[in-house]
């Protein structure tokens, strides 16, 4: 069983999966904050010059990270430093394909595993184009986390689920990250349908900003992902970031699916 599958298999409550951008401020300190707050898995963003799937908050975070010199190698280094003292909290590296492609897919997945990462989520590689990346993830022994969207038709859900490992990430709103509000009832209905199509754990993200929303989603999902709201809070202050992360963790863990 993969690291991520194991985390879901032994869960006794819904999981909290926060996202932050590598190289946007003091990343190691924010990672420690997330662990202290109660994160179960952490998605660590790798910046890209052209983040076409992201809203303005994560675009700006990526820009700050690139300006500060962040690279794929730099993100891997952060994972290495983090994992050396936090063996229990798996990291999923999230980003766009081109930087991974230039780094080398095999080289990337091996380095990711060595650094302690458990998975990769590359937003612009659909299953139709993933053969090289999926092979690299298999040989590197990390999960390739797949996305489902509100637009994904039922037969395609089965096709994607058939190729996925670890967990499936359900993008709760059609849009870019952090811009549209989530509609709880719609997501709840959708999750029920998805449950009939796959046995894989379902993490839900996009558009979740507040503890109450996170709790409502956690009541039906296996995990809740929050990104933009945390990135924004970190811009305000480390204290605001810690406070939001703690509220989210408590809300999600308390929801008990």
């Amino acid at each position: 069983m993969s690291t991520l599958a194991a985390v879901f298999a032994r869960r006794t409550r819904p999981l909290f999966i926060p996202y932050i951008m590598a190289g946007d401020g003091d990343t190691l300190a924010r990672l420690d904050d997330l662990v202290a707050a109660g994160a179960d898995i952490i998605e660590l963003g790798m910046p890209f010059s052209d983040p076409a799937a992201d809203g303005v908050t994560i675009q700006e975070a990526g820009k700050r990270a690139l300006k500060a010199g962040m690279t794929v190698a730099g993100a891997l280094d952060i994972v290495r430093q983090f994992s050396s003292k936090n063996k229990e909290i798996p990291i999923v590296l999230m980003g766009y394909y081109n930087p991974v492609l230039q780094y080398g897919e095999e080289r990337f997945t091996r380095a990711a595993r060595q650094a302690g990462a458990a998975g990769a989520l590359i937003v612009d590689v659909p299953p139709e184009e993933d053969s090289a990346l999926a092979a690299a993830c298999t040989s590197g022994d990390i999960d390739l986390v797949r996305l489902l969207a509100p637009t994904t038709p039922p037969e395609r859900v089965r096709f994607i689920a058939g190729r996925a490992s670890g967990y499936l990430y359900y993008v709760a709103v059609a849009g870019v990250t952090g811009t549209q509000a989530i509609t709880i009832d719609t997501v709840r209905d959708k999750i029920k349908v998805l449950r009939q199509q796959t046995a894989l754990p379902l993490a839900v993200g996009f558009g979740i900003t507040k503890a109450a929303e996170a709790a409502a989603i956690a009541a039906v999902a296996d995990a809740v992902v929050v990104g933009s709201a945390l990135v924004k809070a970190a811009q305000d202050s480390p204290a605001a970031f810690k406070k939001l992360a703690t509220e989210l963790a408590e809300a999600i863990h308390g929801a008990g699916a």
Partner: peptide, 12 residues
């Protein structure tokens, strides 16, 4: 070539 795009746009 190919279709390197987010899942939301793939069905479209």
């Amino acid at each position: 070539g190919g279709q390197y795009i987010s899942e939301t746009l793939m069905p479209l």
